[in-house]
Write a protein that binds this DNA or RNA. Structure first.
Lengths: 296, 296
DNA sequence: CAGTGGTCTAGACCACCAA
DNA sequence: TGGTGGTCTAGACCACTGC
């Protein structure tokens, strides 16, 4: 019951007292920072399935609330990918909590790969541009040796057009069938061998202005382009993998026969708050590469 | 170098009384906690872990050392799968560190799925037997609905024999070619449809006494059997996935044509300390199932 | 009710980095 | 040298579980 005090939203809604107060007293009585929390974050706080009014305390630890506040700042673009965020002490002062509580919030965000800590330097917003995390979502690796030993990666954009979403594409992206989406097709080649054929669909609104030319001109991961040009940061994804045989057109692009089994990889990528922002259907040749997955 | 004072006294580990001791004077004067270590234990202390001549890259935080100690107890079977381990306070007393340090060690072990915390009850050794974590390593899921909606899972052991390891199997298991291994073949069917054909190889020594009959009699995940009958706990694994076409025998077992593309999933599973203990080659039908992978 | 894990705080010191 | 994250401690209180 007394822990309710730590739940910013809940308390805010019910009593209009918009800040967290330690039960052991002695904390300051005013908090400007907590005061401008938008009430729109109701939906994302607390354990799911909690129905207010029935005495169920929507208990959410302080550090979780801090985590959400940081998440909102990330989402709002207060700190951009690759930039430093304020130090733990600064954030602690801003949120009127101890440094240890901020630390725990950042720990979780770092564990989810949204932030990257660097001792002595600060905490940075994760990016798809950084050299050592390029192609974070691509699990296809060469059978032998390092990625660099196979020669350069070539990207060629085949197509980028505006189409109406079919039912399944709309469903995956949280749109309505017929809504406008961008459809991109490209081929990735490793050491001159076409290895990946991808079709991807993006909601037209956030990606307004994306063209095949811009895609072709950009050197670096596509997700890095999305970050810098459209402010869309892919944060999480899930893939459904099957074995398939290619149709005639696919054979041509990948230069394989119609009897060559391929991996079909359907990926849905999400931004913050699990909002789906991309559907991608890839065909992977696995004659000299394999999909590598770690289980733990 | 200065942090070496936190290094654990390995002499005492051997005698069942592991604890951390200060080895440099400077900090221990200001550390009351460390100061109340009985002097009777201090006299057995050497310059622990400090390798003369080389630099000192051997910096390991206290909680990492505690983590290793807990790991060793797990490995030694001091606590068995499904059992509770001592409470944080008990472990803190045993290792002569604060409860918070033990907590951080356990946090990491829980993040690696070696331990499971349950508020109010204790911390438990993870197991493959538990209902809600069954088939932790199996990522093949039905295309629609829940696993239970597809009818029962049938396991049939086709074969279990002792063979000499080929070069590649020996390499994967850290053995020498020609070493004795157990080879098991089985089929998993879902709702009557044969879906997974697996060959797996186990080092013969730790699995001495495993027979097809024992495998067939056991109801539950194979990894649970390994735990309870052979004391081998699989903790981590990695899979290499390809698309392939089956040969004649494989077609027969899976009841598919030779033109049906299948997922080839090669898994190496490891026990504690990353020791490989199983090589498994699976063929998955993906006509009504798919391999589901979460990226983050 | 006692015991367990979970949260929060405060303060100290260490390792790392850049200026 | 000062600032940042990283480690460690101590003590308080809360939430959950089972007797």
């Amino acid at each position: 019951m007394s822990y309710i005090r730590y739940d910013v939203d809940y308390y805010n809604i019910q009593h209009g007292q918009p800040f967290a107060v330690p039960t052991t007293g002695k904390a300051s009585e005013t908090s400007e920072t907590m005061a401008h929390i938008p009430t729109s974050m109701n939906d994302s706080i607390g354990p799911a399935g909690d129905v207010p009014g029935m005495g169920t305390p929507a208990f959410s630890p302080l550090y979780q609330q801090i985590k959400i506040l940081i998440l909102q700042s990330l989402q709002a673009g207060e700190w951009k990918p690759g930039e430093v965020i304020p130090s733990e002490n600064e954030l602690a002062a801003r949120f009127r909590v101890s440094q240890g509580t901020v630390r725990k919030a950042i720990d979780e965000l770092a564990a989810e790969n949204l932030l990257v800590r660097r001792q002595g330097k600060g905490t940075f917003v994760a990016t798809h541009s950084a050299q050592h995390v390029q192609y974070r979502f691509l699990k296809l690796v060469p059978d032998s040796g390092e990625a660099s030993s196979e020669g350069p990666t070539q990207r060629s954009i085949i197509d980028c057009k505006r189409v109406r979403a079919s039912a399944d594409i709309a469903r995956a992206l949280g749109l309505r069938a017929g809504d406008s989406v961008l459809q991109v097709r490209r081929v990735l080649s490793f050491g001159g061998v076409p290895t990946i054929l991808e079709d991807l669909w993006l909601p037209a609104t956030p990606f307004k202005g994306l063209t095949a030319e811009r895609l072709a001109d950009y050197h670096g991961p596509m997700y890095a382009l999305f970050e810098t040009e459209f402010g869309v940061r892919m944060v999480r994804a899930e893939e459904k993998i099957r074995a398939v045989l290619p149709d005639g057109e696919q054979c041509a692009w990948l230069k394989v026969t119609s009897q060559t089994p391929l991996l079909s990889v359907e990926r849905v990528a999400h931004t913050y708050n699990d909002v789906p922002m991309e559907l991608r259907r890839g065909l992977y040749r696995t004659d000299s590469h394999h999909y590598l997955n770690a289980l733990s």
